[in-house]
């Protein structure tokens, strides 16, 4: 995996003004470099980067860890659920909360629409 893909200036800006884990996740997922990182990395690589304690107390370290978590949410749900353990993420204030936000945001909601069902989220 190549973390140099990440658009750190923009991700730092988003991270700095994030008020909630769901805001952080939504806006990180919209940043194209996060999707690019997801496409070019395996779920395991992303998870181990997100849970790596090194540099955790630097702004770039924190931003990169959350970017890897956000990238992980582009992966297959079973892969994410297999990897994700609260203990691994204990060092990140919003680590587990970001994954919980992903679970909520990815929960499909169906509404009756015309003659069939339409997925709205």
């Amino acid at each position: 995996m190549d973390l140099r893909i990440l658009n750190l200036p923009e991700l730092r800006r988003i991270y700095a003004v994030s008020n909630t884990p769901s805001y952080l996740l939504r806006h990180f997922r919209r940043e194209p470099s996060v999707k690019e990182l997801a496409d070019s990395s395996t779920a395991s690589e992303l998870y181990s980067c997100a849970t790596r304690p090194a540099s955790r107390r630097t702004l770039d370290g924190l931003t990169t860890a959350y970017a890897c978590l956000a990238a992980l949410t582009f992966k297959r749900t079973p892969d994410i659920e297999r990897l994700a353990k609260p203990d691994d993420l204990a060092d990140l204030d919003w680590g587990w909360s970001v994954l919980e936000a992903w679970r909520r945001q990815s929960k499909p909601t169906t509404v009756l629409h015309g003659h069939g069902l339409r997925k709205v989220r």
Partner: peptide, 10 residues
């Protein structure tokens, strides 16, 4: 939840 995560840079 009270937070305490802020980097030295921040």
């Amino acid at each position: 939840a009270q937070g305490d995560e802020i980097s030295a840079t921040e």
